[in-house]
Amino acid sequence: MSTVRQIYKLLHWELRLEWRDKYALGSIFLYVITTVVIVYLSVGNALEGPVFNALYWIILFFGATVAAGRSFLREGGRRHYYYYTVAGPLALLFSKLIFNAIVIWLIGGLTFALLSLFAPLAVVVYPLPLLLAVFFGGIGLSAILTFVSAITARAGGSGTLMAILSFPLVIPLLKLLLDAGLYAIDAGSNDVWQPIYLTVAVDLIALAVGIVLFPFVWRD
């Protein structure tokens, strides 16, 4: 089987599993709703501009960490050895990566919808930078978090280790996304495309390094 075909199969598998137990979907749905309600309770009508931007990315980031942290643990026990016999490392990495990216995009969409629902005014003036930031940022976040979760899964999948390792690694990307978000709320002061194409650059670095290094991580 070619790698693309393997990725497709594994992704299909992943999505079907998800559809059966709806664990990721359900937990994310609850997480986003709870957080947005808490945000609304604490911030209230001040939910505008920079506050919106900050809270949006914080919610997205923590949701992404929780979702991606589980990606190499969901098979449970030693069942992943079976996957390793049927698929190559790249196919495995990319199936998880694409799945996580989809989940992150879902979180981004859902959070945006709910936050806008509660915000007193239309905060986002230019949706395009935000849309692009969520799209490329989702890929970047998913690339970094999937890779780190692959490493931590080898150490027993402790959530603390995942947090310690991934937070500093993700911060440059998050800074770029926050910058891009500023343009969406019309508070940016420089070139709109700069944070976007730098996000793409970070995505490419993370993907390239992940592709090269994953074969050393995936099995013992």
Binding site: F147, I151, A155, A201, V202, V209, F216
Partner: peptide, 30 residues
Amino acid sequence: VLRAAFPDPERRARLGAVYNIFAFACLIPL
């Protein structure tokens, strides 16, 4: 911290090396 999490020296060395390279790549945008 990552190295401390692995009791097995071979795993510690291998995943430590992987993380070191990954960290360096993330250092460049930073």
